[in-house]
Design a protein around this nucleic acid. Sequence first.
DNA 1: CGCAAAATTTCATACAATAAAATTTAATAA
DNA 2: TTATTAAATTTTATTGTATGAAATTTTGCG
Lengths: 261, 261
Amino acid sequence: MTVEPKASEARSASSMRSLSRAIEVFEQLQRYDHPQRLNQIAKDCGMSSPTTLRILRVLQEYGLVSQTDKSYRIGPAVLPAARVFLESDPLARAARPILQHLAEQTGLTASLYSKLGFERVLVERVVGAASLGYDLPQGRRLPLTVGAAGKILVAALDADQLEQVVTASVERKYEPAGFTVAELRRRLPPPGEDFAYSEDERATGVVSVAVAVPSRSGTITESISLTSPMESSSRDDLLAQVPELRHSARRLADLLASTMY
Amino acid sequence: MTVEPKASEARSASSMRSLSRAIEVFEQLQRYDHPQRLNQIAKDCGMSSPTTLRILRVLQEYGLVSQTDKSYRIGPAVLPAARVFLESDPLARAARPILQHLAEQTGLTASLYSKLGFERVLVERVVGAASLGYDLPQGRRLPLTVGAAGKILVAALDADQLEQVVTASVERKYEPAGFTVAELRRRLPPPGEDFAYSEDERATGVVSVAVAVPSRSGTITESISLTSPMESSSRDDLLAQVPELRHSARRLADLLASTMY
DNA sequence: CGCAAAATTTCATACAATAAAATTTAATAA
DNA sequence: TTATTAAATTTTATTGTATGAAATTTTGCG
């Protein structure tokens, strides 16, 4: 059973302040598209320069941060970490052949997404015969509020969490200012429906269906989707693939449940 | 100028103990090929269970660690980090077209490696017309003591550092117990030579030449290499490519030096 | 060369990380 | 099912260290 960290415990227990702050620095560095200087990073993280400097130095010691002159950026140590994840994560490993099979059967692009905070991450993708005409690289962060694979990940959340998702999505410029929970709800699948559909949402000219990957704990953190350019698949074409997709998700979940640690 | 963290300062200054320990947990998780339980991780990191648990919880909060039942593993948050690195790191970006050009000109496989602690990491690779017959994935950790691209990274180190490299390489099973600095030295390029050559070293039936990527600070942390199956390239064939390789390394360094932050 | 801004170090203080021990939970055997 | 043991987790007193203000040094720029 996949375990979610309980917010209550995380906050009440001794807080590991410096570690949390270090990870926030690490995350902040990922938001820049150019190396940044100490004071800028400190400001963006809301901490003092000395503290930020000390954190950067430790991260740098381990290759998680690189420095050139006075500018800092993400370091090469993240590469082997990602490699290990892809090669040993039970879900990613189990998903590969299943996505492969899906792509072959349907001719569409099959993807596995993982919920990460208020975004989702493309973990695996097998491009189908009908190419999408653009490339979405493994590891890319995408919104939860847009696209079938995102929407199915938030479909089961309560009002409070949905509010947070909306706030975060606006903050990250995925949605325009003023975007509301009500608007998001309109986009989500109706209650009782176990799949999500999108058309021209995250990328124009692209249609997509997605289902959640069930987990023993009940928390939905992964989804798989089928995507196609609109000119080669109609809405009904895609909806016709939902049973196949649903079946793949179940098979993936079963495969995982039977994995012993 | 790329800056190396000074060991003296890192140790004398306030040590950021919990952060260092957290990164050690994070690194330890990468050494397992299966999810591990708390007590095992704690033991392998040489720290108490409560401390290890607190660290794992924080890392998990940020998706850097995943938990299923009682077993922990690297989490999906490393994927976007690696993506950001590959898309925004000045060196990785600059190297891509240069490796591409090298592979096209020579028909060989061109690679960029980065020194990470006592190992090296494959950062970028463009496979040449003469395939190597095996796949080495981006982000894989490899030894410094074996292979042309590794050897050129340690060629300039002093005796003390070389000793550490040897010790680490034995510990990680890249070299047999009893491997000595003297043996490593025999393998390294002779003084004054700016390239390394290997034959049947890291992979059998494979020959390789490598040069260092110069940096303004003088510290060598990156190398580029050309690799070929032995049946399609002789030693002399590869050595004939050294000037081209050398030229590429210089071009890469110049490109970087001219990048403004 | 001299000024302004940024980086870095120093340092006193408050707070948080730590591991031992206690408690709870889980796993296994009887 | 219950007894037994091990593992996970929480509690707690103590120790240590993370923290930002201020001082100092370095860097960048006119």
